[in-house]
């Protein structure tokens, strides 16, 4: 078997000191292979957001090891971490987190700017990414001129534009209405069918039904790891639709 995109071993994260100490993660181990589409489920307080932040290199685990594409994240310095966040990981947040007063296009271009991509290529790639999420005619709108669903699609485009090895989505549909949720999930299904590796967090079964594999977290530990479709095939909903 090839090197997994994501390899997590005995991940522990503790917050606070002494009596106030909270163990958010109590030894999580997980492998995600290329092309897989994993939904991490759990009630609030189950540690799923903490896990996500660590996977996105935004937070540092208390102990345990974590590899992306074979690179040990714990050994990277600040600069290398920034490079990793830029090149290997695309992050979609629950609250969109677009930069205000910047057009959709500029927001999508931003990771490429930090990646040192030239202006012309940057523009072409950003436009292609926006096209992919169906926002080709809204590229010059600023975030406050877009609906929530559109903003989240811009955020997905921004996460995609660097062609990362791993797409992380932290409750991407948590703040969206049903129609927008469907839009975003359809895009994620499409990406999965195209071979992207996706890890998303949700507490909704409807959302988890889109994934090829569902991991359930309770009190910082994995209690269930269920496969719904093979990692190298299409995601279950698309497969159903094709049938």
């Amino acid at each position: 078997m090839t090197v997994p995109v994501l390899r997590v071993r005995d991940l522990v994260k503790e917050y606070g000191e002494g009596d106030a100490k909270v163990r958010a993660l109590r030894g999580v181990s997980l492998d995600v292979h290329k092309g897989d589409y994993v939904a991490i489920m759990g009630a609030s307080g189950s540690g799923k957001s903490t896990l996500m932040n660590i996977l996105g290199c935004l937070d540092i685990p208390t102990s345990g090891s974590y590899q992306i594409d074979g690179a040990d994240v714990g050994r990277l310095n600040e600069h290398q971490l920034a490079l990793l966040r830029n090149r290997r990981v695309g992050f979609v947040f629950q609250s969109f987190n677009l930069i205000p007063r910047m057009s959709a296009l500029a927001n999508v271009e931003l990771p490429l700017v930090y990646g040192g991509v030239r202006q012309a290529e940057r523009r072409a790639r950003a436009l292609a990414a926006l096209e992919q999420v169906g926002l080709a005619e809204r590229v010059h709108h600023e975030p406050n001129q877009l609906s929530g669903g559109q903003q989240q699609r811009v955020a997905v485009a921004r996460a995609l534009v660097t062609a990362p090895a791993l797409l992380l989505a932290d409750e991407p549909t948590g703040n969206l209405d049903t129609a927008s949720t469907d839009d975003v999930l359809r895009i994620l299904d499409g990406l999965s069918a195209a071979g992207r590796t996706i890890v998303l967090i949700t507490h909704e079964d409807d959302v988890a039904a889109h994934a090829k594999r569902v991991v359930r977290l309770v009190d910082g530990q994995i209690v269930e790891d269920r496969r719904q479709a093979p990692p190298d095939g299409p995601p279950p909903r698309l497969a159903e639709a094709a049938r």
């Binding site: 996105g56 600069h79 920034a82 992050f91 987190n97 930069i99 205000p100 930090y114 990646g115 660097t162």
Partner: peptide, 16 residues
């Protein structure tokens, strides 16, 4: 601060 967080999350280095 939030904007800085976003920029860092999408790969802005400390120097940038």
């Amino acid at each position: 601060t939030r904007e800085i967080g976003i920029r860092k999350a999408i790969g802005a280095s400390r120097g940038a």
